[in-house]
Design a protein around this nucleic acid. Structure first.
Length: 266
DNA sequence: AATGGGACCTGCGCGC
DNA sequence: TGCGCGCAGGTCCCAT
């Protein structure tokens, strides 16, 4: 599922292949993914616009356009952007001025495309917590001290800190040796600092390896990301912990599958 | 305020 | 074999 690293990779690759190009036309294969305006207006308004800037905020991808509007894309779980288009489950094709298609694919139709005046004004964006790379360890510690929620759902809460999803929450907690059910304010200063470091390191490594292709995520080229083989706990239920050989456990936490080592993570 | 559940969806893997 | 079921999870929404 695309989390911060995967969306960041897509952003960087789109900068290489789509930035500065004109959208000459749009084909809507499934209007459900277009949340605003109406699919008809979406098509008409986008046609003829040039992609001026590409941004990421949390897990949201933003294409700024030559008329001042933005195309905001949230991939949710199974969204893909593929260029040149060739994927399956193509919901919207953007025809570019180079004669090729940038395809938006989404198997499960959860993703959301919005053509809007001001992406920063989106309610979702307004509610986002800070990017992990925009705060200091000190700030992170203070943020945690105010919370007694379980640590894993907390770091996945986009209004608390943004960009971390189920995979990287599990990986960062494992690396910091913190049990996912610990109350946030029960962490020592040392643990808080370590968790903050491991969150950032995990995200950085994932970016370096072009993301985790669990389920549907692929790079813009259609190639899978290479980070799954570095996962230490996610998806490894019943397998030996890579550090202590105890069997990795899976529990449900906040309705999400949560993988951890019962021996390493206290 | 915090927590839990359901809804949105599709496809896959499992058990019977 | 084929079917039904549970599960995958980002976000929103509602209930407690």
């Amino acid at each position: 599922m695309p989390e911060l690293p995967e969306v960041e990779i897509i952003k960087r690759e789109l900068e290489k292949v789509a930035l500065g190009k004109k959208i000459t036309g749009v084909t809507v294969h499934n209007p459900k993914v277009i949340r605003e305006p109406s699919p008809d207006k979406f098509k008409k308004e986008l046609s003829g616009l040039t992609i001026k800037n590409i941004l990421r905020r949390a897990k949201l991808l933003i294409l700024e356009l030559s008329n001042g509007k933005s195309l905001a894309i949230h991939l949710k779980m199974t969204g893909q952007l593929v260029y040149p288009g060739s994927g399956q489950s193509t919901r919207v094709s953007f025809h570019l001025s180079d004669g090729k298609n940038l395809d938006f694919n989404d198997q499960r139709l959860f993703a959301e495309l919005r053509l809007i005046d001001d992406w920063r004004a989106l309610k979702f964006v307004q509610g986002l917590g800070p990017e992990p790379f925009d705060i200091t360890a000190r700030q992170f510690k203070e943020m945690l001290s105010a919370k007694k929620t379980k640590i894993k759902p907390l770091i996945m809460d986009q209004t608390f800190i943004s960009g971390i999803g189920n995979i990287y929450a599990a990986e960062a907690l494992f690396r910091a040796k913190i049990h996912p059910e610990r109350a946030a304010n029960s962490l020592s200063d040392k643990e808080k600092a370590l968790l903050f470091k491991e969150i950032k390191d995990t995200l950085k490594e994932a970016i370096k390896h072009k993301g985790s292709s669990v389920d549907q995520y692929v790079q813009v080229s259609g190639q899978p990301g290479g980070y799954v083989k570095f996962h230490k706990v996610y998806g490894r239920e019943g397998k030996p912990c890579l550090v202590c050989k105890a069997l990795v456990k899976r529990i449900a936490l906040g309705g999400r599958g949560t993988y951890f080592c019962p021996k390493c993570q206290k």
